[in-house]
Nucleic acid binder design. Structure first.
Lengths: 107, 107
DNA sequence: CAGTATCCATACCGATACTG
DNA sequence: CAGTATCGGTATGGATACTG
């Protein structure tokens, strides 16, 4: 539909939190509260919801260690790893953009 | 904030329509109704709104030719062109993803 | 041709409180 | 530690009618 495939990637990566979550998973698995600390502005509720959606899309997997207290880790699936270059690409563009924005005062 | 720059790109490219619009502008300037035909599911209202936002973000420029009937064209700004590789990247990923999805029945 | 204006539904998201 | 549940506000998006 609409003659392009761009929307597929955007559906997965888009929204307010998914890109940020995926960015923080780039350097390895993370626990739930670890992600909360890395993304201070996300609420518990939204983090849960977004992680579930990423799981349903097959991008990340949830690994639950049967311990008390609970221990859960989130990490990329093999399929999800195919998205990593895009995340990194956007990260690098964002860095360049902010630098240019504040340096050249481009608006 | 949140320790990453990914969100900047997502703010610009994300949402339901912006990525698709930017994709269709890859191969040159387009007129308003031309974009409507290329994106059959977008409403006039949403196309207008999204084009305005892309304009405000400095990604595309609106060129109005003083004719009757009106003639308007949208195209990438120099700044916007720095986003093109990301759009293309997502497009290629999307193509691969759908092929794999339907071929391997990966789910 | 290229838009505005209005109305309305729902999706998204945050705050807060509670739980195995 | 890693969540759920509930409530409510705001943003997003669609349908339809109208316009310079």
């Amino acid at each position: 539909m609409n003659g392009c495939f761009v929307e597929l990637a955007i559906d997965i990566v888009g929204g307010k939190w998914k890109g940020i979550i995926l960015y923080h998973l780039l350097d390895g698995p993370k626990r739930f509260n670890q992600l909360r600390r890395l993304i201070p502005t996300v609420t518990q509720r939204m983090l849960t919801l977004q992680l579930r959606e990423l799981e349903e899309d097959g991008v990340i997997s949830r690994i639950q260690y049967p311990e008390i207290p609970p221990h859960v880790e989130y990490q990329y699936t093999e399929f999800g790893k195919t998205l990593q270059p895009i995340i990194q690409h956007m990260q690098e563009w964002g860095k360049l953009y902010t630098e240019e924005y504040f340096a050249d005062n481009q608006s």
